[in-house]
Structure formats: structure tokens, C-alpha cells
Amino acid sequence: MKSFGESEEKASTLEQSALEYMDTLFNFAMRMTGNREDAEDLVQETYMKMHRFLHTFDEGSNLKAWLFKILRNTFINKYRKKLREPQEVHDNNDDFSLYDTIAGESEYDPYGKSSFKIEEHIEDEVKEALENLPLAFKEVVFYSDLEGLTYEEISDVIGCPIGTVKSRLYRSRKLLQKLLWEYAKKKGYLKGE
């Protein structure tokens, strides 16, 4: 039958493309589990499920986002983690702005001649800050800033409306900035009080 060969071929092509995301998926799994062994298990399971459920993949959509979704849900089921937004961080950090803080607390003059170059002041803190974000925050920052998924794709992956994606990203970024500020201050890169 012609259609069989065709769909077989299509599946093979999709699987090949999916294999290109292996490091990306592993990277994500490492962030969720924090250890290589569990992360490897998750990636393996994700590919096995992909193989079996490839026929349900909607070809117009983003393959990478679909794989994230499988991995994420496998993670939730396997470790019974809840990826809900932590409530307590809302109150304190919603208005925190690293830019305003630096402008306000350091000797840097934001209205001076040269623009402030953040990368000259913050380096390894990024790793530390990202690692210490609550999972629900970490994942949206990962999807958006590291993997460039659109709000719509993120909304599909985490199963929340786009409004939630926006506000969660906002809060994640605020908290991330706050952590960056604290770590940088601790290490003395920035002159805080």
C-alpha cells in the first residue's frame, strides 16, 4: 500500500529530527531532576514514547515543544512533582527590577554617558540563580529565554492559558533578577549597601 510506505517514511524523518533535540531535552531534564541518571532515564523514556505516539503528533506544530511536553509530563508522573507556582514568592519580588536596583544602589549613573553593561558584572551567578528558581519558574525561563518557545507553545507545554504564561514569566524574571542581585552582591561584583 502506498500510504503505508509514505507514513513510514514521514515517521522516520520526524524521528530523525527529534534526535537532534537530544541534548536540548537532556539539558531540560537535568534542570528538572538535578542528576544525570534520572535525566538520562527521562530522555530515554521521552524517545520511547515519541516513537509510539508519533502518529498523534500534529505536524503543523512545534516538534521540540511536543517533546518537552512528553518529557515534562513523564517527569511529573514519575516523581509526582507538582509544577505549581509558589505563592509565597509573589508578594516580595513582583516589583523588583535589577536595573532600578543597580541604578539606585550602586555608584553607576544610569543617565551617564556610557550604557551599563550587565555582562561585565554578572557571570557565574546566572547558573546559580537559574538553578535556585522554583521548578515552575525555572521551566518557563528555560522555554522562553533558553529555547525560544513562543508564549503559545509554552502555554501548550504547561497546559495553562497564555495570560498565565505571561504572568509566570514575569514573576520568574523578577525573582531571577533578585537572586542575581543577591549573588552578585555577595561576591562583591556590585557595590550594594
Partner: peptide, 23 residues
């Protein structure tokens, strides 16, 4: 200034975050 700061921070987060590779 603010937008540039946030833009470079976004880029910094991508560039400076740890990249793990599978064995």
C-alpha cells in the same frame, strides 16, 4: 537604557546558563 539592560540580561541568561550534554 532599561530595555537594553533587559535585553542583554535575557541574552546573558541564555549564554551563561549551563549546557549539559548527554553521554
Amino acid at each position: 537604557d532599561k530595555f537594553e539592560f533587559e535585553q542583554s540580561l535575557k541574552k546573558l541568561i541564555k549564554d551563561r546558563s549551563q549546557k549539559f550534554t548527554i553521554s
